[in-house]
Design a protein around this nucleic acid. Structure first.
Lengths: 126, 126
DNA sequence: GCTAAATATGCCTTGACACGTATATGCTCT
DNA sequence: AGAGCATATACGTGTCAAGGCATATTTAGC
């Protein structure tokens, strides 16, 4: 099974999300996601065989943690589209800037939503 | 159908890859990928409904082009894992380069101005 | 060695989806 | 109007993966 199919499954993405914070045992994942244990184990097997995670044995427990390579692969694929969409984002930002300047009252809820800033801020600060 | 499932399908990724260069008609995609026309049309329908592409009508042809939002969504998800492969130095470099490219205007807010090696392009490896 | 805990695996069913083939719709030109 | 090209859709079929449930395996503690 290949990287893109792996992350197509919502439960697997959830598991990966959990592991993003720190390594976890099967039981901890099971409880946090309220998911039957065999389901968790099976997904972990798939994730392990695809190289998304690895496990170390701690007595009866197995501690799972992320491995970077498959994520890089996905990221590399995304790369060919980045220039394209970032142009659009910049255009959108320019557009929003104009709108904010010309009619600030339009924003009823008061919140400014700019979807694409999420992934940037993280890497840029410091 | 949701973004991650969409890109799980190899033929759809191929189509998106084709469209990354420029907009294309169904027939052009069909020929470049040597894929039966109904297959192409069906995948394009799926891609369109998921917001990955949009089409404009040109007589009997339909010209398909990419839309950025779903890519951003995937990228945003990937973001939480970036710190794991940031250990790998050139991946980090690529990432930072990308950010510089994608939002140069951000520097008006007083941000980092990184290296002068602007000629580093994305395929580069050493 | 026995028991309980943690995790893995096997089997079965069900549903989704990708594909092939055939056909429909739509547009252009004469 | 009719022919021909470009694209879309409908239908039937096979495959495969996810989930539920039962059971096997491993380890710790007594």
């Amino acid at each position: 099974m290949e990287s893109f199919e792996i992350i197509a499954e919502p439960n697997r993405r959830a598991i990966l999300g959990i592991l993003a914070s720190s390594q976890q045992s099967v039981g901890e994942i099971e409880r946090q996601l309220r998911m039957p244990q065999p389901t968790v184990s099976k997904h972990l097997r798939v994730l392990r065989e695809a190289g998304f995670v690895e496990a170390t044995v701690d007595a009866q427990r197995r501690l799972y943690r992320l491995k970077p390579e498959p994520f890089q692969e996905v990221d590399a694929w995304l790369d060919q589209f980045r220039r394209f969409w970032s142009d659009h984002v910049d255009a959108l930002e320019r557009h929003l800037d104009r709108m904010e300047r010309s009619s600030p009252a339009k924003n009823k809820t008061g919140k400014i939503r700019r979807g694409s800033n999420r992934e940037r801020d993280k890497g840029e600060k410091k």
